[in-house]
Simulated assay, not measured.
Amino acid sequence: MATLKQLVIHCTATPEGREVTAADIKAWHTNPTSKGGRGWKQVGYTDLFHLDGTVERLVHNNEDSNVDPWEITNGAAGYNSVSRHVVYAGGCARDGKTAKDTRTPAQQEALEAYVKDFHRRFPDVRIIGHNELAAKACPSFDVQKWLKSIGIKQ
């Protein structure tokens, strides 16, 4: 068990307007590599923000400031034991290749409410984008700039 140090925001890197299901994520992450998956034991994210703003829990946690072994998801290598990872459906332009902030108004509203509540409960936990941990475009928007715009100072 480790102390929670960061909330990492991700995108699914799917085309704008394409919905993603929990089953999709589970297949992408846990299917064997021979079947197109990554062969992980666990999915990469705790919560999924659907296009309509619905938030779906993918991996249960006890909502405290510790990361128990059964709560660890595979969102960013080297950081999983001290992080919670969340993801929104989207993050690519319609071509499926170009990074783009495709959050729908409903996703933006849901993510803002989630992050504000999370920050209220865990003010010492840093909120970051996946691109702050790895050379990736994910989550296809500047999380630090967005946090300032919604009144969160870290």
Rank of each mutant, 00 (worst) to 15 (best):
13 A>W: 01
14 T>H: 03
15 P>V: 10
17 G>L: 01
19 E>H: 10
19 E>Y: 04
20 V>E: 09
20 V>T: 14
21 T>N: 07
22 A>I: 15
22 A>V: 12
25 I>A: 06
27 A>F: 09
28 W>S: 05
31 N>H: 09
31 N>Q: 14
31 N>S: 15
32 P>Q: 14
34 S>W: 12
35 K>P: 07
37 G>I: 13
37 G>D: 04
37 G>S: 11
37 G>V: 13
39 G>M: 12
40 W>N: 15
42 Q>G: 06
43 V>P: 05
43 V>T: 13
43 V>Q: 12
44 G>C: 14
45 Y>L: 12
45 Y>I: 09
48 L>H: 00
49 F>M: 06
50 H>S: 12
51 L>Y: 00
52 D>A: 08
53 G>C: 11
53 G>T: 05
53 G>P: 07
54 T>P: 00
54 T>M: 03
56 E>D: 14
56 E>G: 08
57 R>N: 04
59 V>R: 03
60 H>T: 10
61 N>M: 08
61 N>T: 11
63 E>V: 11
63 E>L: 15
63 E>T: 15
64 D>M: 09
64 D>S: 07
65 S>Y: 05
65 S>L: 08
67 V>W: 05
67 V>F: 11
68 D>L: 11
69 P>T: 07
70 W>Q: 12
74 N>K: 02
75 G>N: 05
77 A>D: 03
77 A>E: 04
77 A>Q: 04
81 S>F: 05
82 V>R: 07
82 V>K: 09
83 S>T: 15
85 H>I: 06
85 H>Y: 05
87 V>E: 00
87 V>N: 02
87 V>W: 05
89 A>S: 11
90 G>C: 10
91 G>W: 06
91 G>S: 10
92 C>M: 11
92 C>D: 01
93 A>H: 10
94 R>V: 13
94 R>G: 05
96 G>Q: 00
96 G>A: 02
96 G>M: 04
97 K>A: 08
98 T>V: 06
99 A>R: 00
99 A>I: 02
99 A>K: 01
100 K>G: 11
100 K>R: 11
101 D>G: 07
106 A>W: 05
107 Q>W: 01
107 Q>C: 06
107 Q>F: 02
107 Q>Y: 02
108 Q>I: 09
110 A>Q: 02
111 L>W: 01
112 E>N: 01
116 K>N: 06
116 K>Q: 15
117 D>Y: 04
118 F>T: 14
120 R>T: 15
121 R>K: 14
121 R>D: 15
123 P>H: 02
124 D>L: 10
126 R>S: 08
128 I>C: 11
129 G>F: 04
130 H>Q: 13
130 H>K: 10
131 N>P: 03
131 N>A: 13
134 A>L: 07
135 A>C: 04
138 C>T: 04
139 P>T: 03
141 F>K: 03
141 F>N: 01
